[in-house]
Design a protein around this nucleic acid. Structure first.
Lengths: 137, 137
DNA sequence: TATTGTTATACTCTATAACTATA
DNA sequence: TATAGTTATAGAGTATAACAATA
């Protein structure tokens, strides 16, 4: 089998990313949270009162896609919305949500540590800088 | 804005991957091919007579998802199917498909070169090895 | 009995277009 | 006039379950 894709950085990037995302999703599944929901919850917790728009700008997604996402977190009682003015709505994590958030953070940290551990030591320090060079440009 | 995700390798991996994939998809769009279709076409070209199952095993996807993919390539007249026995079907790229494949390869190579160029020189050699460590385990 | 190809279905993430209410 | 939130819709990738036909 000719493996002409395996040496392509773009292809390796895609495969590694989807493998890691699937693993992360599996770890989150017991909490009934998708990766995007988990990231959103954690970001709201760290930035009390943030608006949906600011969140989207930061996460690099469209505002429209945040609507059902926040709606679900609100319905679960983990996030609450407070009108800032007649147009903007600040997001906060509830007490109940804080507990969930702690669990999420634990899973995230464990996951990230295991991910790093899998990268051979001599490549580790280069990993995030290389990724950020692609992401921020 | 507290940026607690930005330093997480898993998050950086996901952002970089989705950014690059979107860019790759945009480059392929004029050929009316999605990234997965392009990879499939190129792999068939390099492995004449390969079966759908083998292709899926290599690409890390489910057989079921290959069906509409190959069907489209066949309908476009770029791939043809030849029964190997009563059960397996070998895939080949047609002459018409070879021309498209050359275009795809050009776009892929240009894309990969630009991707590599964006990574600061001192991190470059570490990039694919780190990704492969995540992907193959 | 295991494998190949297939159908049907659903989930996750993401995008665009268009609308409304407000700043 | 630009922005925040929203609705509706679609597309791309992927997964599972179940099935028929064949090895």
């Amino acid at each position: 089998m000719k493996d002409i894709l395996a040496d392509l950085p773009g292809y390796a990037l895609r495969r590694a990313s989807s493998a890691m995302l699937a693993e992360f999703a599996a770890k989150l599944a017991p909490l009934d949270l998708r990766p995007t929901e988990a990231s959103t919850l954690v970001l709201i917790a760290e930035n009390a009162g943030i608006t949906s728009s600011a969140l989207c700008q930061f996460l690099g997604m469209q505002r429209a896609n945040m609507v059902p996402l926040v709606a679900r977190l609100e319905q679960l009682g983990w996030v609450e919305r407070v009108a800032l003015d007649g147009r903007s709505i600040g997001l906060n994590v509830t007490n109940k949500g804080q507990k969930k958030c702690t669990e999420v953070r634990q899973i995230m940290e464990r996951f990230e540590q295991r991910l790093i551990a899998r990268i051979p030591e001599e490549h580790r320090e280069h990993f995030v800088p290389a990724l950020r060079a692609l992401w921020h440009s």
